[in-house]
């Protein structure tokens, strides 16, 4: 189906080799560990999580920048491969990415106008110069850049303008999927709002499917139709933003949400998690969050909770999914 993104059991493991010994010991870092989700055509999925949770790896897997260890990504009925061959390059016409660092993603030696028009040169070499220019001007107008910006070089623009250039370049092909990896984190708060408005404008006009990755809950709440919370390479909770942000079910989501300052809530209500997230090389057995969970139960240390969905909302937590087992396990634990 057009514009439908399906992710099945996606994992990406990195093998770390420790040098020094004759017999090098290998350890596995599970950056992304079994993701399964769908994004409906035209839907915007937000992914939140702290650094190291595998958000960016997910973005790169979705676009086929790196190969998956197992599992697959299917977009619009086609499997996304990770070998940059002709088919892969063709697929770029339909899926595009927006980066965190707009200056780094722009070629310092080429004018803005040419860079926005470059995808057209690559994918439609037959298009005339004038038609290309007209298209570039139109897209620049859509993202709020004036046409005189076209002759400028990246370093002559402000951060917000650069990010608009990146958006314009991604949109010039009218992609069906847009993956945004922290697109506004590097911007000032005031500029963030402008760029997000541009996003919503363009989405209202073109209606692309989107995956929006950010550590900033407020930004995600503003833009996403659905939110997934990631912890150590897994989704721990997924649901509509108002549900997830107002009644978080997973203890980790609760801690995340409580960290956002809000009027009328005292700072003391904040749930402060103990310690850092465990090293992803040594993910603890059982629930990956049990080392920091304020409501940890003995079963959490043994059995890994599955993501169970109920009415469009899914949570991976024993406490939520089968409170009885959790309670029984507690009893067992106490008896033992």
């Amino acid at each position: 189906m057009k514009g439908q993104l399906t992710v099945k059991n996606l994992t990406r493991h990195y093998r770390l080799r420790q040098r020094g010994n004759l017999f090098a010991r290998t350890k596995t870092l599970k950056a992304v560990d079994g993701l399964t989700f769908d994004v409906a055509p035209g839907e915007m999925l937000g992914i939140v999580g702290e650094s190291g949770s595998g958000k960016s790896t997910t973005a790169r897997l979705l676009l086929g920048h790196i190969s998956a260890t197992s599992g697959e990504v299917v977009f619009g009925g086609e499997k996304v491969g990770a070998v940059p061959d002709l088919a892969w390059r063709r697929m770029r016409r339909r899926m595009q990415m927006i980066y965190q660092d707009p200056l780094g993603a722009l070629d310092p030696r080429i004018t803005i106008g040419e860079q926005i028009g470059e995808p057209l040169i690559v994918h439609f070499p037959d298009i005339t110069r004038d038609a290309r220019r007209a298209k570039v001007r139109a897209v620049m107008g859509n993202v709020g850049l004036s046409s005189h910006h076209g002759d400028r070089f990246p370093h002559e623009l402000s951060g917000g303008q650069r990010q608009r250039v990146i958006i314009a370049r991604a949109l010039v092909m009218e992609p069906e999927l847009l993956v945004c990896d922290e697109p506004v984190s590097a911007l000032d708060v005031s500029v963030q709002a402008q760029v997000l408005n541009v996003f919503q404008d363009v989405r209202a006009r073109n209606g692309f499917t989107g995956v929006f990755i950010s550590h900033d809950l407020k930004v995600v709440r503003q833009i996403a139709d659905r939110v997934a919370v990631m912890y150590l390479g897994r989704i721990v909770e997924i649901g509509r933003p108002d549900e997830v942000f107002h009644q978080p079910l997973h203890p980790y989501s609760r801690a995340l949400v409580s960290a956002v300052p809000r009027k009328g809530r005292s700072a003391r209500e904040r749930i402060i998690l103990a310690g850092d997230p465990p090293n992803p090389v040594n993910v603890p057995p059982g629930c990956p969050f049990h080392t920091r969970c304020p409501q940890v139960k003995p079963v959490c240390r043994i059995e890994r909770p599955e993501l169970m969905s109920e009415g469009g909302r899914a949570v991976a937590c024993h406490l939520v999914n089968n409170p009885s087992t959790a309670r029984v396990a507690v009893a067992d634990g106490e008896a033992a």
Partner: peptide, 16 residues
């Protein structure tokens, strides 16, 4: 990092 990765992302050929 940066501009070359971005050029790859828009589907440019290695030669380009």
């Amino acid at each position: 990092q940066g501009y070359a990765a971005a050029a790859r992302e828009i589907g440019a050929s290695p030669g380009r």
